[in-house]
């Protein structure tokens, strides 16, 4: 089973996402910023990285780029409060495979994650 890496500088957000995912049967790790995310991605192999975009030290976009570059993870999904028109394109262009808008809807969130995980399995 692939682990999921949840990256967010906000504790509550991390907690919520982790809780939901674990309740759905997934295994999760946490990172508090982009830098940590890269480190952990280097150390572990994750099936999915859920990454907040706005973070101190290193933001999500930068981290995603490095992770992509280094081929550390196949799927990186953005968790973003910015959900205006145009942002989606920007995110996808930056190396994210998709995004989840905050505040996250618990049901939908799980569905989406399942979908991504499955995708991964189908197309490794």
């Amino acid at each position: 089973m692939n682990k999921i890496l949840v990256v967010d500088d906000n504790e509550q957000n991390r907690y919520l996402a982790t809780y939901l995912l674990e309740h759905a049967g997934e295994t999760c790790d946490q990172a508090v910023n982009g830098e940590q995310a890269v480190e952990q991605a280097q150390q572990n192999s994750y099936g999915l990285i859920l990454m907040d975009v706005q973070m101190p030290i290193m933001d999500g976009i930068e981290a995603a780029r490095i992770i992509r570059e280094q081929g550390l993870c196949a799927k990186i999904i953005a968790l973003t409060a910015k959900a205006m028109r145009g942002d989606e394109e920007k995110l996808l262009a930056s190396g994210f495979d998709g995004y989840v808008a905050k505040p996250i809807d618990p049901e939908n969130f799980i569905k989406q994650v399942k979908h991504w995980m499955l995708e991964d399995k189908i197309h490794p």
Binding site: D9, N10, E11, V32, P56, I57
Partner: peptide, 9 residues
């Protein structure tokens, strides 16, 4: 302020 922690949030 850009701080190295989560306090501003």
């Amino acid at each position: 302020i850009e701080q190295g922690d989560a306090r501003q949030h």
